[in-house]
């Protein structure tokens, strides 16, 4: 997301002022190393404390597999929903001039800073059995959302979709609208332009946004446990499973954490390449 090209002049200026020195002064080096250690030591702790000898046996237990399976399919669906609904919203935010759009944009990013538990309470009050809308879902269709995998997906979408929206919106803003205009001049309809020109231009950011969204959904805890509760195999996702396992089976908690750590590292490695390409293209 960060575009190195825009930073370069500033960096050049800094280098000029600093006489191009390569070694960092102690005032910078010491806190930097403390920060690095602070971020890495806990991860090292997980790896050192992990019960490697019976890792396989713990990880292939039904409860661990249930949580992993549930987490994987719910986060994937939440990401899919975020793409289907979020990309059009991002387009609306970036390309139209509707009144009050500034406020809409602020509201869209709200879940990024909102404590997830608050999101869960809000979802419960909106879609719970006695909620604003949930009441009618229950009365008219007999549908109750809390404590179902659907509630897990809703909680994940609520907290994760903004990541996708702001990534895609940023890309839309910086993309050259000239291509779209050219296509339109050549007679392409608005939908064709969106499908054949806008989307392909967006692809790298869309993938980056989707991966971010997926990773955020995977880590979702607060909104999920508040809105969807916790039941093994149905609503107990990996992070919730880790939280409970710490009380009853710390070894399992450590191993499940390691699995999530591994997934996160894979996501980052995958994204790094993608991000570099995005940066280079702008």
């Amino acid at each position: 997301m960060a575009r190195p090209t825009t930073l370069r002049p500033a960096e050049r200026a800094r280098r000029a002022a600093g006489g191009g020195q390569r070694s960092a002064p102690g005032v910078i080096l010491v806190p930097a190393l403390i920060a690095l250690a602070f971020l890495l030591i806990p991860l090292g702790g997980l790896i050192i404390r992990a019960p490697w000898t019976h890792a396989w046996e713990i990880l292939t237990r039904d409860d661990a597999l249930d949580a992993l399976r549930l987490s994987l399919w719910t986060t994937t669906l939440a990401t899919g929903i975020s793409i289907v609904l979020g990309v059009p919203l991002a387009w609306l935010l970036a390309r139209t001039d509707l009144p009050g759009l500034r406020w809409v944009r602020a509201l869209v990013t709200l879940p990024l800073v909102l404590p997830p538990v608050v999101g869960g309470v809000a979802l419960l009050l909106a879609f719970g059995r006695n909620g604003l809308l949930g009441r009618y879902l229950d009365q008219w269709f007999g549908i109750t959302l809390p404590f179902t995998p659907a509630a897990v997906i809703m909680a994940q979408t609520f907290v994760a979709m903004p990541f996708l929206i702001i990534t895609v919106e940023g890309a839309l803003r910086s993309a050259d609208a000239g291509y779209e205009e050219a296509a339109a001049t050549l007679g392409a309809g608005r939908l064709t332009v969106f499908r054949r020109v806008t989307l392909p231009l967006l692809a790298p950011s869309l993938i980056a946004g989707a991966v971010l969204c997926w990773a955020r959904a995977l880590g979702e805890f607060g909104a999920t446990i508040t809105f969807a509760g916790s039941f093994p195999g149905r609503t107990q996702t990996m992070p919730i499973s880790v939280y409970y396992a710490l009380e009853s089976d710390p070894d399992a908690a450590i191993l499940l954490s390691l699995v999530m750590l591994l997934v996160s590292v894979l996501v980052l490695v995958g994204l790094r390449d993608r991000w570099l390409r995005v940066g280079a293209s702008s």
Binding site: F147, G229, S230, F231, P232, Y243, Y244
Partner: peptide, 10 residues
Amino acid sequence: VDITPVTLEP
């Protein structure tokens, strides 16, 4: 009795 809970709370 075999209770069938929808959620197991903290």
